[in-house]
Design a protein around this nucleic acid. Structure first.
Length: 476
RNA sequence: GGCCCCGUCGUCUAGCGGUUAGGACAUCUGGUUCUCAUCCAGAAGAUCGCGGGUUCGAGUCCCGCCGGGGUCACCA
């Protein structure tokens, strides 16, 4: 069966608000969003809250927050299925009237006994093997079941390709539960038809029930959407489906840690999709332009956080400093609180290319805002510096102090002065520059020496050189 | 157990009968006036899950097997 192609795509993301959204779920949302955006269609958020028992209070808001955080804006919703019960009931009644649905007369225990019997015989459980001959009139207190008309199905999936299923997997599924709520199996089809959804994009866990859905589409005389089934995203270690229980972070966790939404989007999109070229990182706009469901891979992918880190760093490096400055505002070290915007921007400018995730900002920049404790181990652990005696080290710092006092502290002038010092002292950059770098920062690493000193400023640099000089002398 | 989906470097992947099986991340080495990072150059890393077939020729097509995953709920 080939669905009619819809000129304007209408896609939806339809999670159940039962917990935190992980990366796998977000990818489904992203792809649905991309299909809608690239076709100038609509993207709809629908919350499948038909299971009162499993619903988590804050989960709906969490889903909204995740989509917003990634910039996956929706045009309609969030639509809660719990507010549309009349719709499902009417659709169900229609099926009853047509003789395509009937009340389930068995108790849950009886059904469970059927199931266990099937298990014992190592056979799949099919309710329709026990279909009652004269079911009672449906009064709402019993589950309502679909009277399936099993057949051999062949259909196309935009990702998986040609798919098929036989009667052995088709059953009389429950449409309406005895609590009056529809099942997912029923509600989502009624909704997708009513909302005129063009592409049903969802996870692999629904693949096995698609034949049942197909039967329902026929019974409801609904138009078939395009199906697109996404493979699961797996943990980086095992071959398990990514889930919160295994310590998988939800999307908001990553944002809080300082990953950029655009990096998350690019990374998640390329987890199973590529455009056929050797491009590795995509902007949102590029994705909208280039994405296609038929280039989505069919096999599950492992979530590799190291690659995400690289993608994130790539976005950070390619961003104008002013833009980056706005984004890192919450990540500065505490000591930076009183520093000026101008100063922080200068620091950021020379730190940008070594910043991979915002949470690293404090350890990368703290010495610009506070005096780190003197740690002679930094000098003594240096291959070049440990060859020099304390006196020699102190003398080099003394000469540095002298020549640098005359600098205007532009990066260029500092470099010229430092180069000159190299000549007059006869030292290698490996030792002289290392010594000065350590003596002015007491940090394990920092940007280029001249840039660091220039940003640090004359007063601070001289002050730190003097203190360090003092320390070297007293320790010799 | 039945049914369905999947199986190319550690990881993400390109490949749609003829390639020295390509790229990226990660790893390692060297270079960029010091550290860290970037950038550049290079190395290592895949008998394309295994076995049959079809073909002059198969990662690419067919069959079987193995492995992984999903599903068989009044959960989604």
């Amino acid at each position: 069966m080939v669905p009619e192609t819809n000129p304007v795509p209408r896609t939806r993301f339809a999670p159940s608000p039962t917990g935190l959204l992980h990366v796998g779920g977000i990818r489904t949302a992203l792809f649905a969003w991309l299909v809608a955006r690239q076709g100038n269609g609509q993207f709809i958020l629908r919350l499948e809250d038909t299971d009162q028992a499993r619903e988590v209070e804050a989960a709906g808001q969490h889903i909204v927050d995740c989509l917003n955080a990634l910039g996956l804006n929706y045009d309609e919703g969030p639509i809660r299925q719990s507010s549309r019960l009349g719709l499902y009931k009417a659709a169900a009644q229609k099926l009853v009237d047509k003789g395509l649905a009937y009340a389930d007369p068995y108790t849950p225990q009886e059904v469970q006994a059927f199931r266990e019997q099937a298990q014992k015989e190592k056979k799949p459980f099919l309710y329709r093997n026990h279909r009652p001959e004269k079911p009672p009139v449906w009064d709402g207190s019993q589950p309502l079941r679909f009277k399936a008309n099993p057949r051999n199905w062949n259909w196309e999936d935009a990702v998986m390709g040609s798919l098929k299923a036989g009667p052995e997997v088709q059953d009389d599924i429950i449409l309406i539960k005895s609590d009056g709520f529809p099942t997912y199996n029923f509600a989502h089809i009624v909704d997708d038809a009513e909302m005129e959804i063009s592409h049903v994009i969802r996870g692999q866990e629904f693949l096995a029930s698609t034949a049942n859905y197909l039967n329902l589409y026929v019974a409801l005389e609904a138009r078939l959407p395009i199906f697109a089934t996404m493979p699961h995203i797996l943990n980086s270690e095992g071959n398990k489906k990514l889930s919160k229980r295994d310590g998988a972070k939800d999307v908001l966790d990553y944002i809080r840690e300082g990953y950029l939404p655009e990096a998350m989007v690019s990374f998640i999109a390329t987890l199973g999709w590529n455009d056929g070229t050797e491009q590795e990182v995509f902007t949102r706009e590029e994705l909208i332009k280039k994405f296609s469901l038929d280039r989505v891979g069919r096999s599950g992918a492992h979530f590799d956080e190291r690659r995400l880190l690289w993608v994130n760093g790539s976005f950070i490096r390619n961003m104008p400093v002013d833009e980056l400055y706005k984004k890192v505002s919450d990540f500065w070290p505490e000591e930076a609180a009183s520093s000026s915007e101008k100063y922080k921007k200068q620091v950021l400018k020379i730190t940008q290319e070594r910043l991979k995730i915002f949470s690293e900002l404090p350890e990368l920049t703290n010495y610009f805002f506070t005096d780190l404790p003197v740690d002679l181990e930094l000098i003594d652990g240096n291959k070049q510096l440990k060859k020099l005696s304390r006196e020699e080290q102190a003398d080099l710092l003394r000469q540095t102090l002298e020549i640098i006092e005359a600098s205007d502290f532009t990066a260029e002038d500092l470099q010229a002065k430092l180069n000159h010092l190299l000549e007059t002292t006869g030292q290698k950059p490996g030792s002289l520059f290392s010594l000065i770098r350590i003596a002015t920062t007491w940090a394990p690493f920092s940007p280029a020496l001249n840039d660091t000193l220039s940003v640090l400023g004359k007063d601070k640099t001289l002050e730190r050189l003097k203190t360090s000089l003092q320390q070297l002398r007293t320790s010799s």
